[in-house]
């Protein structure tokens, strides 16, 4: 069984559905026409580019190109974390924390998943490493952003209580235990929710892809289970590192709550 190839005409046909978006924007004067055009064009160009780039990398099948591309994915994900945050944390330390968290978690979980669970031949087969790293990074990125946002937000709101605990002689992790707990809970929640509902409402993208490509649905489901466990591990590990690092970033070496740089004045990376 082979996949039905798509022609450029098929793409154009699907694109007509975008007119629904444009019509709504026009009818209700939302002023979103420009955004719709830009977002849709970005999506097409980015996906076309990534298709070409992946084709090149798959053809090389060399550890160097695989790792280079993997590193670029990590940097892109870290940049996205910083862009998403309204966090009251200075931009460069934030970039450092999110990129090192994503690099460590991405490496650890992907090596575990590809090297020990799936074990393709050769081990650096980009066809396995890059999509799995992508799924791991995508979910960890969301978790890290949620953790840091919740932590800095709550630390700022509960400043009085935190300083009260510090004044009574609590070290920073004890004084910040409230925000730390809510940050971890917020970071872990999306993954727990998606594990509970996956397969009922929506089929996960990777499983859908495998099924359309002609794979056995049971085999595809097994793959998906492995991926979900990898993602669960990655988000837990990522949340933990981000939360611990976040506590260090909102305090200083004398366990003082830092004065927060206001969100609007934060320099962008």
């Amino acid at each position: 069984m082979t996949i039905v190839p798509l022609s450029y005409w098929d793409l154009l046909l699907a694109a007509t559905l975008l007119f629904a978006n444009a019509a709504i924007s026009w009818r209700f004067r939302l002023g979103l026409e420009r955004s719709i055009a830009i977002s849709a064009s970005r999506m097409v160009v980015q996906l076309a580019l990534i298709g070409v780039v992946l084709k090149f990398i798959f053809a090389q099948s060399s550890p160097f190109w695989t790792l280079t591309f993997a590193l670029m994915m990590v940097v892109a994900a870290a940049t996205e974390v910083v862009a998403r945050l309204h966090a009251r944390i200075a931009a460069w330390p934030l970039m450092g924390l999110s990129s090192s968290t994503l690099l460590f978690v991405g490496t650890f979980v992907t090596v575990f998943g590809v090297g020990f669970v799936i074990t393709p031949e050769p081990w650096y087969a980009p066809r396995y490493i890059l999509p799995i790293l992508g799924m791991v990074l995508g979910n960890t990125m969301t978790a890290v952003a949620l953790v840091l946002e919740t932590l800095s937000e709550n630390a700022n709101r509960e400043r009085n209580a935190i300083e009260g605990r510090l004044a009574l002689g609590a070290p920073r992790f004890e004084a910040l235990s409230g925000p730390l707990r809510s940050a971890l809970r917020t970071g872990l929640m999306p993954m727990l929710n998606s594990m509970a509902t996956t397969g009922i409402v929506a089929l996960p993208g990777m499983m859908t892809g495998q099924i359309i490509a002609g794979a056995d649905p049971v085999g595809a489901a097994m793959y998906q289970v492995v991926i979900m466990f990898l993602i669960a591990g990655a988000t837990a590990l990522g949340s933990l590192i981000a939360a611990a690092g976040g506590v260090m970033l909102v305090t200083d070496d004398r366990h003082r709550l830092r004065a927060s740089p206001s969100a609007s004045h934060r320099k962008s990376v």
Binding site: E158, N160, A161, I162, E163, G164, R165, A167, L168, G178
Partner: peptide
Amino acid sequence: VRYCSPEPAWW
């Protein structure tokens, strides 16, 4: 060196 705030904090 114990600081006692005029607005005591509770958590």
